[in-house]
């Protein structure tokens, strides 16, 4: 399923203010790419450009191109793009008026799938993938707020997986969770990378070091350095990377 995601000279703007400057990088398939950087460095904007969520904000636009499977995502219908590039947000955001089951099924229904058995099958599979199935299989038709925040976040992962995207973006998915839940998410990311291209935004460098195959550091809207976490954390090539890692930046 996974395909490499290739970004070429991506710039993003809010009105006249430039948020991202000419970012180019490759996020290889079956690998976890982590994006690190201080707050306001453009990490979130970057990933929101990957599924074209950025442009839904008033006055926002972007330039450059993003390639997936030989297609420029910026030349596709954004609706199609978002079905190829799934996203999980910082805070769990299950649809509060829907049940557990319907949350996972939401994306399928948007795709026009009406067949009940297909939906049920896919819901179970996605919940299995996000290792939530055993916890919710008896409460599928209960409201989502009976779940813990950690469970809710895994539900959101299942919701994103249900439509079988090629790429899964996780924007600081464990930053608002307790350590145990955060760990579960981390394990999940490890499990999922065999089938997806995973982009994980985090400000937790330990986490980045643990799960990443590739790490990219953003500072003030620029991609400062990218490489394997071992290289980046121990042998930074850029002065700014070193400053950031030693706490002299941001």
């Amino acid at each position: 399923m996974g395909k490499s995601l290739i970004v070429e000279t991506l710039s993003a703007f809010y009105g006249k203010q430039q948020i991202l400057r000419h970012v180019s990088m490759t996020m290889p398939e079956h690998q976890v790419t982590t994006i690190i950087g201080p707050s306001g460095s453009g990490k979130t904007t970057f990933v929101r450009c990957l599924n074209r969520l950025h442009e839904t904000t008033p006055n926002a636009h972007m330039e450059g191109s993003v390639w997936l499977d030989h297609q420029n995502l910026y030349e596709l219908d954004p609706i199609i793009v978002r079905r190829k590039v799934g996203m999980v947000f910082q805070a769990p955001n299950p649809f509060p008026t829907k049940t557990v089951y319907e949350n996972v099924a939401a994306g399928l229904r948007l795709n026009g799938i009406r067949n009940k058995s297909i939906i049920s099958e896919q819901v179970e599979k996605s919940l299995q993938l996000s290792s939530l199935w055993n916890e919710v299989k008896n409460s599928l038709h209960q409201p989502v707020w009976n779940l813990t925040r950690g469970q809710q976040q895994r539900l959101c992962i299942a919701r994103a997986l249900a439509i079988e995207p090629s790429v899964l973006i996780l924007d600081e998915p464990s930053s608002t969770l307790d350590p145990l839940s955060a760990l579960k998410i981390e394990e999940l990311v490890e499990d999922l990378k065999s089938s997806y291209t995973i982009v994980l935004v985090t400000h937790n460098m330990q986490q980045a070091a643990r799960v990443a195959d590739l790490t990219a550091l953003f500072l003030e809207g620029e991609l400062v350095e990218q490489g394997s976490p071992a290289d980046l954390f121990t042998r930074p090539r850029d002065k700014r990377t070193e400053d950031y890692l030693t706490g002299r930046f941001g």
Binding site: R82, M87, F89
Partner: peptide, 29 residues
């Protein structure tokens, strides 16, 4: 209606109309 919820729907590939039907109206009903 929280922006995260609306973004959640958009990120699933919902059109504006689908987002309204799926998230906004149920939340505000």
């Amino acid at each position: 209606v929280p922006q995260e919820l609306q973004d959640g729907a958009i990120a699933l590939g919902a059109t504006r109309t689908e987002k309204v039907r799926m998230v906004v109206l149920p939340y505000a009903r």
